[in-house]
Amino acid sequence: MALLKVNEITKVFGGLIAVEDVSFEVNQGEIVSIIGPNGAGKTTIFNMLTGVYKVNKGTVEFEGKEIQNKAPREIVKAGMARTFQNIRLFPTMRVIENVLVGDHINIQYNFLDLLFRTKKFRKAEKEAAQKAIDLLESLELGDQINNYAKNLPYGMQRKLEIARAIATNAKLIILDEPAAGMNPQESEELMKFILKLRQNGHTILLIEHDMSVVMNISDRIYVIDHGRKIAEGLPAEIARDAQVIRAYLGSGGVEKDAEQDA
Rank of each mutant, 00 (worst) to 15 (best):
R240Y: 00
R158C: 00
E137P: 07
L234S: 15
L135A: 05
I75L: 13
V101N: 06
A163D: 06
K159Y: 00
F62S: 04
E74H: 11
G233S: 14
I145Q: 01
T10W: 00
R164F: 10
Q68K: 12
Q199Y: 04
A231E: 03
V60G: 02
L152N: 03
A231K: 03
L249W: 03
Q68F: 06
L172W: 04
A149I: 06
A231S: 11
M191T: 03
G233M: 15
L3C: 08
G41K: 04
A262L: 08
Q260C: 04
D113E: 09
Q68P: 02
E208Q: 02
E127N: 11
A231M: 05
E232V: 03
Q243H: 07
K123N: 14
E61H: 11
R164D: 10
K120S: 11
P91H: 15
A242R: 10
G142P: 03
D176H: 08
G252M: 13
T168S: 15
G39V: 06
H104L: 12
L160E: 01
F84K: 11
E237W: 06
N56H: 14
L195M: 13
G201W: 05
R82A: 09
T43C: 12
H226Q: 11
Y148A: 12
N27I: 05
H104F: 08
I173G: 05
H104G: 03
L152I: 04
E20N: 13
D257R: 14
D143E: 10
N7L: 04
I145K: 02
R73M: 14
L4G: 07
Q185W: 00
V223G: 00
L190V: 02
K57N: 10
L152E: 05
Q28N: 11
R220C: 00
S33N: 09
V244A: 02
V6Q: 04
Q144I: 01
E125R: 08
H226R: 09
T83V: 11
S218H: 09
L89G: 13
F84Q: 13
L152M: 10
V101A: 14
I34L: 15
